[in-house]
Amino acid sequence: MSIQYEDLMLSISDGVEIHALHGRHPEGGGRPTLVFLHEALGHIRMWKQFPEQLAERCGCDLLIYERQGYGGSTPIELPRSNDYLLVEGEYYLAKVTEAAAIDQMILIGHSDGGSIALLGAACLGDRVRGLITEAAHINADELTLAGVRQAVDTYRNTDLHQRLERYHGDRTELLFRAWTETWLRESFHQNIDLSPWLSQIRCPALIMQGRDDQYGLPQQVEDICQGIGEHAQAAFIEECGHIPHLERPDAVLDLMVPFIRELID
């Protein structure tokens, strides 16, 4: 294995500690770091082998971290604020990467992490060399809300709680509520609109979504690309749902690797 890992607890100025995994590739010096931003119920281990596979093929360092409330990071309390995505993209992403001594980065975000990546790319300017999103959302469409409602039913009536507990332990219920109660709160889903930030994104962007994503309409991808402009490209993964990097990893790597290589070569 060529990537060497360091397990970190990053102290943020407001007293929050963020758990992160920093991987260094022998060829990574001088290249932007791949920064992975997880979904609404995410965890470092839930990325599986995908970050390492991508970093190996691109010859880049990587950083995966757990946002406040997740994994080994400082807990959160409910209710979650309506502007939590903006706080993560505008404030915490900058603080976490600064604490990890990362200047230049390529953001790779999934679902909530994709939305945070969009905001981060808009707010961090030249520090972001490239942007990749999977299943990002800039608003709450009817499919998003139907998917969240279905997730609540699944959580209450299947073993989903137990499966999530393997990652989140005694935080499982709190994190599930933080996701579902926030998105189903009218003051949140009737007002969320990240489109004003898109025109501030100057870096190349690869905007991806599974063709069968159960949490977002294809219009999300189209609207994101239109908002960013000509340096954004859309990619739909066939026979794929909400988690392309796990459901169709080879197809996703085939798209991400050349996109990243063009940025760093």
Rank of each mutant, 00 (worst) to 15 (best):
Asn157Leu: 01
Leu164Asn: 09
Arg163Leu: 11
Gln200Ile: 00
Trp183Glu: 13
Ser187Gln: 15
Ser195Met: 08
Leu164Thr: 02
Gln162Trp: 12
Pro196Asn: 12
Ser195Val: 09
Gln190Val: 03
Gln200Trp: 03
Ala178Arg: 08
Leu160Ser: 10
Phe176Pro: 10
Ser187Ile: 04
Trp197Ala: 14
Thr158Trp: 02
Thr180Glu: 01
Phe176Tyr: 13
Glu181Asn: 13
Trp179Phe: 14
Asp212Ser: 15
Leu164Ser: 03
Thr180Asn: 11
Tyr167Gln: 02
Leu160His: 03
Met208Arg: 05
Leu160Gln: 12
Arg156Thr: 06
Gly210Ser: 04
Gly216Thr: 05
Arg156Ile: 06
Leu164Lys: 03
Arg211Asp: 11
Arg177Glu: 10
Trp179Met: 13
Glu181Ala: 11
Asp159Tyr: 04
Trp183Asn: 10
Asn157Lys: 15
Phe188Leu: 04
Pro218Gly: 08
Thr172Val: 08
Glu181Met: 09
Pro196Gln: 11
Leu217Trp: 00
Asn157Glu: 09
Gln209Pro: 04
Gly216Phe: 02
Asp170Val: 13
Thr172Ala: 09
Leu175Gln: 05
Leu194Phe: 09
Asp159Met: 04
Pro196Leu: 10
Leu198Tyr: 09
Ser187Gly: 12
Ile207Ala: 03
His161Val: 02
Arg156Glu: 15
Leu217Gln: 14
Leu175Ile: 10
Ile201Leu: 06
Asn191Asp: 11
Gln190Gly: 12
Gln214Met: 13
Thr158Arg: 08
Ala205Leu: 10
Trp197Gln: 13
Asp212Met: 14
Arg202Val: 00
Asp213Ile: 12
His168Ala: 07
Ile201Lys: 03
Phe176Trp: 04
Phe176Val: 11
Gln190His: 15
Thr158Met: 07
Gln162Ala: 13
Trp183Gln: 11
Ile192Arg: 10
Arg163Gly: 02
Arg202Tyr: 03
Pro218Met: 02
Gly169Lys: 01
Ile207Met: 08
Gln219Lys: 15
Arg163Gln: 15
Gln219Ile: 05
Asp212Thr: 11
Trp179Ser: 10
Trp197Leu: 10
Thr172Cys: 02
Arg156Val: 03
Gly169Trp: 01
Arg211Tyr: 07
Leu217Val: 04
Gly169Tyr: 01
Leu198Lys: 06
Ala205Ile: 06
Gln219Cys: 00
Leu198Asn: 05
Leu206Arg: 12
Glu165Ile: 00
Asp170Phe: 07
Leu175Thr: 08
Ala205Arg: 02
His161Thr: 05
